[in-house]
Amino acid sequence: MSTVHPPAPPGLDTGPLPARGVIGLQLQFCLQWIWLPFRVALHLLNNMPSGDCAADGHGVGKFVLTPSRYRLERSGTREEWEAWAERALDQGLTSAMAGVVGYVSHNNSTRGKWKYKGDMLVPETTIRRRYYRGIGPGGLAVLAARRGWQVDWRYVGQKELRLFLPPREGSA
């Protein structure tokens, strides 16, 4: 795939996001062990879709600031952030494509025809800031373009970035 992607709108900062504060990271890392059992219990009691981004996964690990992520947040290099973002991106894109395949399979088996959003079926996913903080939205756009996906620039500056798989030329 190519690394060509639609450019960000003029005036939009696509560089790395500001690093998290040392004190906040230390507090989160130390205090998470106190509130973690309550958060896990609440998650298990609710057992409802939480609207989390696809890259977060569904296990308890999404609640924990692991030692490796703590080191990444404190002193991660651009290459380490790219590797971290690539893992999250691959997980999110796989989940998005599985959702589309499931959606199409369900509609084909129950109704005998394809269903579309608008006039086309467009898979999309979201990636939270914690996965691309060190490379910024521009870096995530490059990683996504290598896989054929694009960033929806309207959502830059929010808690998560939306990515979508653009329709192929001549498929409309």
Rank of each mutant, 00 (worst) to 15 (best):
T3P: 07
V4Q: 12
P7S: 09
A8F: 12
P9D: 02
P9H: 05
P10C: 01
G11Q: 05
D13K: 06
T14H: 09
V22A: 15
G24I: 06
Q26H: 14
W33Q: 02
I34S: 03
L36A: 13
R39P: 05
L42V: 01
N47F: 13
M48W: 07
M48D: 05
P49C: 03
P49V: 04
G51R: 09
A54E: 15
A54L: 12
A54T: 03
A55H: 10
H58A: 07
H58K: 09
V60G: 04
K62P: 02
F63H: 14
L65S: 06
P67A: 06
S68M: 11
R69V: 13
L72H: 03
E73C: 11
E73D: 09
R74A: 01
T77L: 03
R78D: 12
E79T: 10
E79D: 15
E80I: 00
W81M: 02
L89N: 01
G92P: 08
L93Y: 05
M97L: 15
A98V: 10
V100S: 12
V101I: 08
G102S: 12
G102W: 11
S105N: 13
S105C: 15
N107C: 08
N107K: 08
N107Y: 00
S109C: 04
T110S: 03
K113C: 06
W114I: 11
D119S: 10
M120Y: 06
V122D: 00
V122W: 02
P123M: 06
E124T: 09
R128E: 06
R130C: 11
Y131M: 02
Y132W: 04
Y132V: 00
I135S: 06
P137M: 00
A141I: 02
L143H: 09
L143E: 00
R146Q: 14
R147T: 01
R147S: 06
Q150W: 05
V151L: 14
W153R: 08
V156W: 01
V156I: 02
E160C: 11
F164M: 11
L165C: 03
